[in-house]
Design a protein around this nucleic acid. Sequence first.
DNA 1: CTGAAAGCGCTTACAG
DNA 2: CTGAAAGCGCTTACAG
Lengths: 344, 344
Amino acid sequence: MDGRLMTHTKITSAQVAARAGVSQSAVSRVFTPGASASRKTVEKVRKAAEELGYRPNVLARAMVSGRSRIIGVVVAYLENQFYPVALELLSNALQARGYHILIFTAPNSSDAVDLVVQDLMDYQIDGIIAASVSMSSDLAHRARTAGIPVVLFNRAQEGEGFSNVTAANVLGGAQVAKFLLAGGHDRIAHIAGWQGSSTGRDRQAGFLAVLENADLEPWAVVDGMYSRAAAGACARDLLRGTERPDAIFVGNDHMAFAVMDVLRAEGLMPGQDISVVGFDDVPLASWGAYDLTTFRQPVNRMVESTVDIILQQIETDDAQPCSVEIEGELILRSSARIPEGWVS
Amino acid sequence: MDGRLMTHTKITSAQVAARAGVSQSAVSRVFTPGASASRKTVEKVRKAAEELGYRPNVLARAMVSGRSRIIGVVVAYLENQFYPVALELLSNALQARGYHILIFTAPNSSDAVDLVVQDLMDYQIDGIIAASVSMSSDLAHRARTAGIPVVLFNRAQEGEGFSNVTAANVLGGAQVAKFLLAGGHDRIAHIAGWQGSSTGRDRQAGFLAVLENADLEPWAVVDGMYSRAAAGACARDLLRGTERPDAIFVGNDHMAFAVMDVLRAEGLMPGQDISVVGFDDVPLASWGAYDLTTFRQPVNRMVESTVDIILQQIETDDAQPCSVEIEGELILRSSARIPEGWVS
DNA sequence: CTGAAAGCGCTTACAG
DNA sequence: CTGAAAGCGCTTACAG
C-alpha cells in the first residue's frame, strides 16, 4: 500500500465513539431514528461525527436490520418514452421516502426476467417493481418465500400473488372505439399492443367489444408488438390496397408515432385523410410534430399507487397482493377527427 | 409471528453446509470465484444449495470484501431522450460485467447533486457515474478520500480529479458552422446549450470560432438552457422581426425539436425556409416527423469508455483521472439545406 | 440513558 | 483441500 491508497479511510462508528468518549452503541443510537440518547450524548456524537466526516454504512445496517432500503426495478426497453418518465417519477418518489432504486434491464421474455430477478434478490432488496415485464410463477413463489413484495407496474398477471397497478385499459380501448364511431368512421383498423401482454389484450378487448356492439366489423386487427419497426410495417401493409382504413387505433403512442410517420411518407395527413389514436399520452404526443389524440394513462398517479403499495407491504411485512386500476381520459388533439359535440 | 411470516426464510451458507456435511467456509469457497475446493466438495455443496435454493447474500459479501458491485449513477432529467438511451446502454454493459446500477435523480444544481451523492456513498458503492451533472470540488475530495472513482459522463470538469467522457464538442460545433457556411447561409443564429455546462460552452465556442474565422457575425446567440420551453421561447423571439435568420444551430436535439415545432407553427418549413441543425442524434432525430440534421454523439462508444474507465479504476484500486473525447460525425437529413458536393 | 456483548451472513488468513 | 476463528460495521436485546 502506498500513500495514496492509505488515504482511503472509511470512518466507522467505533472511531466516532472513541473521539466522542462514548460507546459504539451510543453512536449507533444517535444515528438510529427512534432510538434514545441524552442531549449531551447526541451533541458529543454529532460533533465528533461531523469532524471525522462519519456516515453510517447502509450495508452494515441492512445486514442486521434485514432492510436494505433498496427497491429493485426491472424495466425492458427505455426507447418508449413512457418508461423513462415513469422511472424518473418512481425514483423521485422513492428517494423522498428514503429508498433507492437498483435498476435492472431485461428483455421482456419470462426467462430473461427470471434470471435478472434472481440477481436482484441477491442484493437483499426490500421489494421489486416490475415495469411492463412478466415473471414466471416459479419466481413469484420464490419472492413470496423470501418475503419480498412484488408490484407489477403497467401489467396485470392474475393468480400469482403479485400486486399490480394499471390504467383502465379495457375502458380506455372502449372509449377510443366510441370516439372513432362517433366521428363517423366505418373502416377502423387496430394495430394492437403486444398480445403477450395484459395491456395489449385489454385495450384490444375493450376496443373490439364496442365495435361489435355497434355491429361494425374491424377493418383489420394486427399485433404491433409494441415495436416501432413492427408497427410501421403494419401501417404500410394496411395502406397497400386501393381501399384504406379511415381510422387506426394504435396500442400505444410509441407505435402511433411510427404509424404517423408512415402515413405522412405516403402523403396522407393524419386527422384529415385518416384518424390516428394512440394510448399513453407520453410527453412527445403533445409536441407539435405529432399532436396525437390519445388515451392518457395518468403515469403520476400510477407511480404514486405503486410506491404506496410497495412501501406499505414492506413496512407492515404483510404482502397481501392488491390490484389497482387508475382511470384515464381521452386527450383530443389534431391526429383524429373530432366528432361534433363530442364530450368525453 | 404467524404462519405466513414464518415462511420468510432466508437460506444461509451455514444451512447449506449442514446439509452438505461440510464447513461453512467450504460453502463460501464454492461460491467464491477463484477459491479452491475439491470436486467432491463442489458437487455436494452445489447439490445442497440447489435443494435449499441458496444464493449468497451480496450485502454480506460486500461488507467483508469492501466491494459492493454497485455503481451509483446520477442523472438529471430523463425527458431528453439522450439519457434513457445512455442509461439503458450503461445498465446493460455493467450488468454484463457483474455490476449493477443504483440510480439517483437530482436536479442539476451543484448543491442538490452533492446531497444525493452523499446518500449514494452511504451505500458503499464502488464508483460513481454522473451523467450531465456537476459536483462540487468538496464532494470530489470526499469521493477521492473514500477511494471511490468518479466518471463524468457527457460533461467535463477540469481540475477536480474526475475522469470524464465527452464527445468532441468543440469540433462538433465547428463542423456545424462549416456546414451551414458551405450551405450559403449568412444569417446564422445559435440557440446554445446551457452555458453553465461544459458541453454548452464547448459547442458554442467551436461554432463561433468558425464563424469568426469566416468574418461572419452570428445573427444571434442565446442560451436555450437545454430546456424545451426555453428553446421554444428563443425560437419565437428569433422569428419576431421582419428579418429572420436563415439557419439555426441548436445546442442539442431535444431543444431542436422544440425549435422545429415553433417554426412549423409559424408556417415555416425546416430545410426549405430555414435550416435547423441539432446535436446528439437521439433516435427521435431520425424519425419522419423531425428528420433532423444533427451532429452525432456516439453514445454507445461513450458508454463503453465510461464503463471501461470506471471498472478499471475500481479493479486496480488506482484512480488516475483520465479524460476521453469521442469523435462524432454530422448526420445529414432534411431539416437543413445540404451544400452541393458536401463531403463530411 | 448507557455500555458490553451477541449476531447479521459472509470472506479470508491461518493451521492442519 | 479443509475447518475453526476472526472480523467487516452495524443494531439491538440485556443488564445496569
